[in-house]
């Protein structure tokens, strides 16, 4: 346990302050993706970066109590399901897959452009949790390589 408690208190304090701001900025990038530059892809990577920052600062064991790998893969699948079901609803309502079936709204408002905002959120969940899960897997592997390099020989 003492090996994985992370970095110095300075880094932990700065992480504590920064994490909320980064999450808010990621959510802003996603939700305003159809009005200002941004969208699901950069917002998802930024939300993954928040969890990776916590992992680097506090160690793997602490962060896996909050969001474990299995939760990450479930959220990832939920994102894919949202995207797929938006497409299927469009198929039944409008006659073509991924049809934009919601109202267009007035421009420059957050509730405009129909299904784009839902799809942005779905892509955010998918990209963010995918990258976080792959980082967890890489971190675990690194620990095993350093601690017991001889175990792989058979």
């Amino acid at each position: 346990m003492d090996k994985h408690t992370g970095m110095t208190p300075i880094v932990k304090m700065i992480t504590e302050v920064l994490c909320g701001l980064m999450l808010v900025f990621g959510a802003f990038i996603v939700l305003y993706g159809h009005i200002t530059p941004g969208g699901g892809f950069p917002g998802g990577v930024m939300i993954a970066l928040v969890y990776i920052l916590i992992t680097l600062a506090y160690g793997r064991v602490i962060v896996e109590r909050k969001v474990s790998g299995i939760i990450a893969s479930v959220v990832d699948d939920i994102g894919a399901l949202i995207f797929w079901s938006v497409g299927m609803i469009g198929l039944f309502v409008g006659g073509s897959y991924l049809f934009n079936f919601l109202g267009k709204g007035s421009p420059f408002h957050i509730l405009s452009a129909g299904t784009i905002i839902i799809n942005n959120i779905a892509i955010t969940l998918k990209v963010g949790m995918c990258l976080y899960a792959i980082f967890l897997a890489l971190a675990i592997l690194q620990r095993v390589v350093i601690d017991e390099p001889k175990e792989e020989e058979e």
Binding site: L131, I134, A137
Partner: peptide, 11 residues
Amino acid sequence: GTLALMVSIAI
């Protein structure tokens, strides 16, 4: 994503 795949193969 592909970079992560290549890095994991290298490791």
